[in-house]
């Protein structure tokens, strides 16, 4: 995101007519090299990998059960012996619940983006490639979704489907299809006029084949960049739904719901109540920084 501008001002562009040496390097190689040089991106990636590993390995890392607490050990503060993150209002170990909760939060944030990317890419590339009434139909329908505040739509869908992880993922997937379809459509429209697509059309290859071989390969970068940028947002939105009681059902731990449940304890045990939120934030910001690095590495303009 930080745009390096050693030459502030437009004058520089006018001055710089010097030719820079061209590197014999493929697009993906260059992208990988740039990513490997981005400190922020690497740190974010490391943080996320660590989160995934500890939440998957949670049973090995903690002796406590995430859903059963000891009523005698309620609301212990951070740093208590045996409970470094303290305990919650039911006497459950917070560290354990954070570790297990990471599983749900990560799934609830990643899965919708994945689903929406697949569906949005199909819809967008189809309407960009075929055009005419197909594009009309698909894109006007997508526009409809733009008319909603996304979070509100997700809440309405979730509310009508009822609580639960699957319903939450469905609701979030629906709200992200439209923006991804737009990106895919725009990217497709840019490349269908390219010569190699024209050439493929002339050889008489069927539409679906061109779409899957040529078009998808070429619109991958912008869509990947856009989708990766959505993950951070999706993590927060998923947590919002859980916070409202529209996510996984208790006692399964999930960060958003934990935050809501601990809301009442802020006068008694304040910093424990803030912990789940910190983890939502840390995950979300790591995804956002990773996405920024990916965008810079792939050199895609927003």
């Amino acid at each position: 995101m930080a745009i390096a501008e050693p030459l502030a001002g437009n004058a520089a562009a006018a001055w710089l007519a010097s030719d820079s040496p061209t590197r014999p390097e493929s697009y993906m190689q260059a992208a990988r090299r740039r990513f490997m040089h981005s400190r922020v991106g690497l740190v974010a990636l490391a943080v996320l990998l660590l989160l995934v590993v500890v939440s998957v390995a949670a049973p090995l890392l903690t002796p406590y059960d995430p859903s059963i607490g000891q009523p005698a050990a309620r609301l212990r503060p951070i740093g208590s012996p045996g409970h470094i993150f303290g305990t919650d209002e039911q006497g459950r170990d917070m560290l354990t619940r954070i570790l297990y909760g990471g599983r749900m939060s990560l799934i609830a944030g990643l899965a919708p983006v994945l689903v929406a990317t697949v569906i949005g890419t199909i819809l967008g590339s189809l309407s960009g490639f075929v055009g005419k009434w197909v594009a009309m139909l698909i894109m006007r329908t997508m526009d409809m979704f733009y008319a909603f505040p996304a979070v509100l739509l997700a809440i309405a869908i979730s509310a009508s489907l009822g609580p639960g992880l699957i319903n939450q993922i469905i609701a979030l997937s629906i709200i992200y299809i439209a923006p991804i379809a737009r990106v895919a459509e725009a990217a497709t429209r840019r490349i269908v006029v390219a010569e190699f697509i024209e050439a493929a059309k002339l050889t008489g290859a069927p539409t679906w084949k061109i779409l899957f071989t040529q078009v998808l390969a070429n619109i991958f970068s912008p869509i990947f960049v856009y989708s990766s940028g959505l993950v951070g947002l999706a993590i927060v939105t998923a947590a919002s739904l859980s916070f409202l009681g529209l996510g996984v059902r208790p006692p399964t731990p999930e960060w958003g719901f934990m935050l809501n449940a601990l809301r009442g304890t802020i006068y008694v045990n304040p910093w424990v109540a803030a912990l789940p939120g910190f983890f939502i934030f840390a995950t979300s910001i790591s995804f956002n920084m990773l996405a920024d690095s990916i965008r810079d590495s792939l050199d895609v303009k927003e």
Partner: peptide
Amino acid sequence: AMLRTILGLQPKS
């Protein structure tokens, strides 16, 4: 560049 220098419109650095 020379014209811009006369005018004082050079970049910062």
